[in-house]
């Protein structure tokens, strides 16, 4: 290995220990000297490059990684939150449904009970009202009678469950006909006709109000229903 090549080798790789380099040093002490000098320079370069590293750096690196990991964790539990939310939702719906069912009531039964109760307490009441008095009260339901509806024994507001109804007592062929006019009772059930040994019922459901008829069994309630409802007009 000539001098120039040797120097180039050592400049590029001062710690080179391969056979050719070793042999060259053994044969030529100038080369050995040059190698040692370059070794000293290399030591200085190493020291110069060996800048201090801030002690906290390692912790900072690991901290950043662990924060990154932590911020990813909610993704894992999202499924659990979704399941919990679903359970809560179903639970809420069940409770709601249960309470709604509790609120619902059989409207025909209540009307019947009301009629029986009134028959006992003031069955003989006859106020002989005119149609205008009735219409004044009916206005609260957005309705009015366009024509006479025959004899009117009474027209009183009464309470069916939580609903305020207008209770009309009219004259029928076979006794008194009770008509309840009430705001839409959507949570009520029992709109079908029923009869017991004395009375029979009908119901009509309009857009803004419900009507329930209770009359003696012998009464032709279908005809009564038609006649009344032909005379009524709705403003709402």
């Amino acid at each position: 290995m000539d001098d120039l090549e040797f120097r180039k080798r050592i400049y590029a790789e001062p710690k080179c220990q391969d056979d050719a380099v070793r042999q060259a040093m053994q044969e030529d002490k100038h080369k050995r000297k040059f190698y040692d000098e370059m070794g000293l320079l290399e030591q200085k370069i190493e020291q110069a490059l060996d800048v201090p590293v801030s002690e906290g750096l390692q912790s900072k690196i690991i901290l950043r990684q662990s924060i990154q990991e932590k911020s990813k964790q909610p993704k894992v539990s999202k499924a659990y939150i979704a399941i919990a939310a679903s359970i809560a939702f179903v639970f809420g719906m069940t409770i709601n449904h249960f309470l709604a069912n509790q609120n619902s009531f059989n409207v025909t039964e209540m009307a019947l009970a009301h009629v029986y109760h009134e028959m006992q307490s003031h069955g003989n009441l006859d106020l002989d009202l005119d149609i205008n008095t009735v219409n004044a009260k009916l206005a609260a339901y957005g309705a009015q009678f366009e024509k006479e509806i025959g004899h009117i024994y009474s027209a009183n507001f009464c309470q069916i469950k939580n609903t305020r109804a207008l209770h009309l007592v009219l004259a029928g062929q076979h006794g008194q006909i009770n008509v309840f006019i009430m705001p839409k009772a959507n949570d009520a059930t029992g709109w079908d006709s029923v009869s017991d040994n004395k009375l029979t019922t009908r119901s009509s459901r309009y857009q803004s109000a419900d009507l329930i008829y209770v009359a003696p069994k012998a009464e032709n309630l279908d005809a009564v229903q038609d006649s009344i409802e032909n005379k009524i007009s709705w403003r709402i």
């Binding site: 490059l49 060996d50 800048v51 590293v53 801030s54 750096l57 900072k60 690196i61 950043r64 990684q65 990154q68």
Partner: peptide
Amino acid sequence: YRYAYWLTHDQHIAEDIVQETFLRAW
């Protein structure tokens, strides 16, 4: 860090680069 320092000549930039490097490595 030392490699980054001698590339950038700035302690803070070097630390940033090293932190980013290890985060990507993770």
